[in-house]
Amino acid sequence: MTNLPSCVQAYLAVTFALSASPCSTHVLASILGYVATSRDPVIGGSLLLTYTTGYVAPLLLAASFAGALQSLLSFRKFSAWINPMSDTLLLGGGLYTMLDRLFPTTMAM
Rank of each mutant, 00 (worst) to 15 (best):
L28Q: 02
Y51M: 07
A10F: 11
M109L: 14
Y11Q: 11
M109C: 11
Q70D: 12
P22F: 13
R39F: 05
Y34I: 12
L72F: 06
V27F: 05
M85W: 10
G67A: 09
A13V: 09
M107R: 13
L99A: 09
L49I: 09
D40N: 06
T53F: 13
H26Q: 08
Y96P: 02
K77E: 05
T53M: 11
A29K: 05
S64G: 08
I82M: 00
P41V: 08
G92A: 07
D87A: 14
D40G: 00
L12E: 11
V14I: 12
A10I: 10
A63H: 05
L89G: 04
L72Q: 06
L18R: 13
G94W: 15
D40E: 02
I43V: 13
Y11R: 05
L4W: 11
A57I: 12
S74A: 04
Q9E: 06
D100W: 14
V56R: 03
V42G: 10
N83H: 04
S30I: 07
L69M: 10
A108M: 11
I82D: 00
A10S: 09
S79I: 02
Y55L: 15
P104W: 03
A17E: 06
I82R: 00
V56W: 02
A66W: 13
A13T: 07
C7T: 15
Y11C: 08
A36V: 15
L99Q: 10
Y55N: 12
I31A: 07
T15H: 05
M1I: 08
L89S: 05
A13C: 05
T15D: 11
L60M: 05
A36P: 04
